[in-house]
């Protein structure tokens, strides 16, 4: 496992996937807030793709990478080649952005303390992403669990059936608009 190699590869990956959006963001309009009116902070904009080196003492990971949905397999292959292991896959429902986030946690068991989190955001209406089963067999159950809870369709998964929920269930309890069944 070489931290520098992983960092370089993931950074390159994050850079190639970036969609060049023209910088058209208008200057923030300072709204006049009436005295006494409750100040409401605007919700933070979703993060852009890229690699962040974060403080493990605070965040628990060393590298935090956001990629496009079609790049997670390439990232998994790069981490697999460096001897990292896939620790968990999960999702987060960002219902206000109309997006679902996939979170892949990688750790290293060879000695050094090194954790990487790879994330990708996919549209909530078309929750499709490629499976990692061909790279890490552990992805099989983690993806089935994520399919259970979020209804994310892992393309190419050999057995995308409910794992923890009953086999005939058609609800996804961790979606924020889930109202009970």
């Amino acid at each position: 496992m070489n931290k520098a190699t992983i960092t370089t590869q993931l950074r390159a990956l994050a850079a190639t996937g970036m969609v060049d959006e023209p910088e058209t963001a208008p200057a923030p309009v300072v709204e006049e807030v009436e005295e006494g009116a409750k100040k409401k902070a605007a919700p933070p904009a979703p993060r852009k793709n890229g690699l962040l080196e974060v403080d493990p003492a605070r965040k628990g990971v060393h590298l935090d990478v956001q990629l496009n949905g079609d790049q997670v397999v390439a990232a998994a292959q790069a981490l697999d080649a460096e001897g990292m292991q896939l620790e968990a896959i999960t999702g987060v429902d960002w219902i206000n952005d109309n997006e679902l986030e996939l979170v892949y946690d990688y750790s290293y068991t060879g000695g050094e303390f090194f954790r990487v989190v790879v994330r990708a955001r996919i549209p909530r209406d078309e929750p499709n992403i490629s499976t990692l089963c061909d790279v890490f067999p552990s992805a099989n159950w983690h993806e089935r669990e994520t399919y259970d809870f979020f209804g994310i369709n892992f393309e190419g998964h050999p057995q995308l059936e409910n794992l923890l929920l009953p086999e005939d269930s058609d609800f996804h309890p961790l979606l924020k608009d889930f109202k009970g069944c």
Binding site: A88, D105, R115, V117
Partner: peptide, 18 residues
């Protein structure tokens, strides 16, 4: 605001919370 991860060694292996 943000996301956090922490792992400990449980009797059966790595227990992590994200």
């Amino acid at each position: 605001v943000g996301d956090y991860y922490h792992a400990v060694e449980a009797a059966r292996g790595t227990f992590g919370i994200r």
